[in-house]
Design a protein around this nucleic acid. Structure first.
Length: 344
DNA sequence: AACCCGGGGTG
DNA sequence: CACCCAGGGTT
């Protein structure tokens, strides 16, 4: 009786998932390609992002940057513009750097080996496994939040997914289940996790592996996965000055630390001479995953060209207007403020 | 190993 | 309101 790592008693689970995937795969057009560039962009766009939320961004991005070379030769700010509103902006910065890595280190040819793909900026073990398996027949499970949920339920495993060892732990569980066709298996797990084995109210009646699911047979799917670490949010206040004159206003680019990396924003301070020009202030709130923002925007309508020039030049602000601001990427709440200003 | 990074959807 | 999402980087 042969007994290697791949002929586990649980292999039939992976095969059921494969055959389920064959009939029930979500109709996503990027599944029609094995172009590693497109799959890579796809994986980055949809990190921590639901398909419906990122689909337009993905399509527009691919249309503007259809290949590695086009992306590598683009300006970083234009890449950021195509990422506007998606969040986690370091993804855009890293994707751009990685495209230049591919041009410089791999002669513009997307690397085939998992270990090489892993060297690209912004590509971690999940993404390297996904691209490798989908495009090149790699044999690594693409372990993500779906894997955690599905596997912890099937095995009724209470391993804490907050634990930093969760990735390697569930990778080993995945190996027990994983069939030969790893690319389709990885995507099957994504679809099952998204459509059937959902975080709340999973559709176990429609699940192809409900016979194999310990959590289901025990009526305890809601207890998995176990996650001890709770999300904590803190309050943060931001104050901006919308300094404008003759339809123009002042902006600057943020650093690549803290939130909204390298996005554009309004001045956060003004000189004393500008204070008399404040005409109104708008206060609103904006929720981020780890922060509750309170944002105050003081509108400063400058009627003195001398003061405008002095302030603008001294602080090296960028002068823009409503039309030109469409070429820059602003944080969501500031984007909204600019849009509302058009109606005033 | 702990912490940080967005925006939108869900129950 | 808490939790989740085709995670990765930094410290």
């Amino acid at each position: 009786m042969k007994k290697d790592n791949r002929s586990s008693d649980f292999l039939h689970i992976g095969n059921k998932l494969l055959s389920w995937y064959g009939k029930n795969a979500r109709d996503l057009h990027f599944r029609q390609t094995k172009d590693p560039y497109k799959i890579w962009i796809c994986e980055i766009v949809f990190q921590q992002t639901r398909i419906n939320q990122g689909l337009n961004h993905y399509n527009n991005f691919i249309k503007r940057f259809p290949d590695v070379k086009t992306l590598a030769e683009a300006e970083e700010n234009e890449v950021l513009l195509y990422w506007k509103g998606l969040g986690y902006y370091s993804r855009a910065i890293n994707i751009h750097k990685a495209s230049q890595q591919i041009m410089n280190d791999y002669h513009g040819v997307f690397p085939v080996e998992y270990e090489e793909i892993l060297k690209l900026k912004g590509v971690g073990k999940y993404t390297a496994a996904a691209v490798s398996s989908i495009c090149f027949g790699g044999k690594m499970p693409a372990v993500d939040g779906n894997f955690y949920r599905v596997l912890s339920r099937i095995f009724a495993d209470d391993f804490d997914i907050s634990n930093s060892k969760a990735f390697s732990y569930f990778s080993q569980l995945a190996m027990l289940v994983m069939p030969e066709n790893v690319g389709d298996f990885n995507q099957a797990m994504m679809d099952l996790g998204s459509e059937i084995c959902k975080p709340k109210n999973p559709l176990c009646g429609e699940c192809p592996v409900n016979d194999d699911c310990l959590a289901f047979s025990r009526g305890k799917t809601s207890e998995y996965p176990v996650k001890t670490k709770k999300v904590k949010t803190e309050d943060l206040s931001l104050k901006y000055y919308f300094v404008c004159r003759n339809g123009q206003f002042l902006i600057r680019q943020r650093k690549d630390d803290f939130i909204w990396k390298k996005l554009f924003e309004f001045p956060t301070t003004i000189s004393r001479e500008l204070e008399p020009f404040i005409t109104n202030v708008k206060t609103f709130t904006h929720k981020l995953t780890h922060k509750n923002l309170t944002i105050e925007i003081f509108r400063v309508e400058v009627d003195s060209e001398a003061i405008w020039n002095t302030f603008t030049v001294k602080n090296q602000y960028i002068i823009t207007d409503f039309e030109a601001s469409h070429d820059k990427s602003f944080p969501k709440p500031l984007e909204n403020y600019i849009q509302n200003s058009l109606k005033d």
